[in-house]
Design a protein around this nucleic acid. Structure first.
Lengths: 119, 119
DNA sequence: AGAACACATGAACACTTGTTCATATGAAAG
DNA sequence: CTTTCATATGAACAAGTGTTCATGTGTTCT
């Protein structure tokens, strides 16, 4: 019952406990795709920069673009994607659209990533 | 000194405090790219599945492939990438290559992502 | 040595992704 | 109402990504 895991190869059916645990803990396919799509958001340096900026302060679109030295169009396209993933929200204020982080998980996810990267 | 943030638009130089904080807290470009590359690993459902499996138990390549119903070649290509990112390590055991998570951050990163996805 | 199994790898291909460029929408000021 | 500033959006294109297929490498067994 606490035996070492035998390999499945060439001897199927000999370690049902692992198989069962995996099947129980693996999220369903929809959740898995959502999860992957979420992490894709953090997988582009432009979007990472945007989120880093918004961790400091909410900010309008043109300020983000100017601060990062990236074209307004590129920023706008990325903001659209980030909003679809519910990571960023925005409100209008006169001529400007003010963007801000919509989820506390953003900071903790980035923090975990950073501690891996920084060894 | 605790004033509301003015917008940068059309009035540059009026909110140096935010600018300065952003410049201080933004990682250098190399770190940013590493960070984005790290999260790219979590941005593919095949790699997510592999990591979910390895969260339960170390396992040889062919078992991972069989368990997930994905071709051995596809798994092997993805494992190569995951190893380059130092997320997975492996050792040889006879004919088999046993893979296992190489970093504790994997679990916590995935956990943070899941709690976002599951609302 | 040869056969069989486990895994790795390279090329090719379809598919996705991010940017640029041009243009459209929307609010505010003259 | 026209202009101007702020932002959004669509098309097009280059670059990146993941899979398959075929084949190569390494290990064990007879």
């Amino acid at each position: 019952m606490d035996e070492r895991n035998d390999l499945m190869c060439e001897e199927p059916g000999t370690h049902g406990d692992v198989l069962e645990r995996v099947r129980n803990d693996m999220p369903d396919d929809d959740t898995l795709y959502e999860l992957a799509d979420l992490f894709k958001m953090f997988g582009d340096s432009t979007r990472m920069k945007i989120m880093f900026v918004l961790m400091e302060s909410e900010m309008c679109v043109c300020d983000i673009a100017e601060l990062l030295g990236i074209s307004q169009s590129a920023i706008s396209h990325q903001l659209r994607i980030l909003k679809q993933s519910k990571l960023i929200s925005s409100r209008r204020e006169g001529k400007n659209i003010i963007c801000f982080l919509a989820d506390d998980h953003v900071k903790s996810i980035i923090a975990q990533g950073l501690s891996h990267v920084l060894e």
